[in-house]
Simulated assay, not measured.
Amino acid sequence: MKIVKTDPLSPIATELMAELSEVLATITGSSGTNSFDVTDIKHPDALFALAFDDTGRPIGCGALRPLEHGIGELKRMYARSGTQGVGRALLAFLEERARELGYRQLWLETRKVNQRAVNFYQSRGYQVINNYGRYQGRDDAICFAKDIRLSIKKQTP
């Protein structure tokens, strides 16, 4: 698998985000497009990543954008059906880039009904936090945070 930073307006990125929107609409009743503006990824401390399998087929995507000083927000995380390990690889890639950009924490929101996503993030060390920003007061939303400084691997001498 290969993961690369790319333009979120590229045809492949647009295709994957459209697939994600269809999947989210089926699971949650909302495509999630109202909470993501692709121009947010044009910020110097933001990025959009695509995952490709060994044959070069696009199999997933994810985005990182600034939220507050030292806090980045994960958006548009998606792995095509039938793939294995794509979400984990994308998340690790985005966490590493976030550390390189100086973020201390990553936050994200998903819908409570999207139990697969809830379980995914919890199994990777994300903790439930109070709903933030546009998600405050939304009973259908669940927000998570992870201190990515704790994820830095210690090097042995």
Rank of each mutant, 00 (worst) to 15 (best):
Asn119Gly: 10
Ala117Asn: 03
Gly137Ile: 06
Thr26Phe: 13
Arg57Ser: 04
Ile3Glu: 00
Gln84Gly: 12
Ile152Met: 06
Ala25Tyr: 15
Ser81Cys: 11
Lys112Thr: 07
Arg65Leu: 14
Leu50Thr: 12
Lys112His: 11
Arg149Asp: 13
Trp107Tyr: 15
Ala18Pro: 15
Ala49Gln: 01
Ile27Thr: 06
Phe48Tyr: 06
Pro66Ala: 12
Arg134Gly: 09
Ala51Gly: 07
Arg111Phe: 15
Asn114Asp: 07
Pro8Trp: 06
Arg104Tyr: 11
Asp45Arg: 15
His43Pro: 01
Arg80Pro: 14
Asn114Ile: 12
Asn131Ser: 00
Arg116Ile: 14
Gly85Ala: 05
Phe93Ala: 01
Gly32Lys: 02
Met17Ala: 04
Leu47Cys: 09
Asp40Leu: 14
Val113Pro: 07
Gly87Pro: 15
Val128Gln: 08
Glu73Tyr: 12
Phe144Tyr: 15
Gln136Val: 06
Lys146Asp: 08
Arg65Glu: 14
Asp7Gln: 05
Ser123Asp: 12
Gly29Met: 04
Val113Ile: 15
Gly72Pro: 00
Arg88Gln: 11
Val4Ser: 10
Thr28Pro: 09
Leu101Pro: 01
Arg99His: 11
Ala92Trp: 03
Gly70Ile: 02
Leu64Arg: 13
Asn119Asp: 09
Thr83Lys: 03
Arg99Leu: 06
Leu74Glu: 07
Leu74Asn: 09
Thr39Lys: 09
Gln105Ile: 02
Arg111Cys: 10
Asp37Cys: 08
Asn34Trp: 14
Ile41Asp: 11
Ala141Gln: 07
Ile129Val: 03
Tyr126Ala: 04
Gly125Glu: 09
Thr55Asn: 08
Leu74Val: 01
Ile27Val: 12
Lys42Met: 14
His69Asn: 12
Gly133Asp: 02
Ala98Val: 04
Ala117Ser: 03
Gly137Glu: 10
Lys146Val: 00
Ser81His: 15
Lys146Glu: 08
Asp54Ser: 11
Arg80Met: 00
Leu9Arg: 08
Arg138Glu: 11
Tyr132His: 12
Asp147Arg: 07
Ala51Phe: 04
Met77Pro: 14
Ala89Lys: 12
Trp107Glu: 15
Asp37Thr: 08
Thr26Gln: 09
Leu47Asn: 09
Asp45Met: 07
Val23Glu: 06
Lys42Gln: 14
Gln84Asp: 10
Leu24Val: 08
Tyr135Asp: 09
Ser31Trp: 08
Met1Asp: 01
Tyr103Met: 00
Asn130Ile: 01
Thr33Cys: 07
Val86Cys: 04
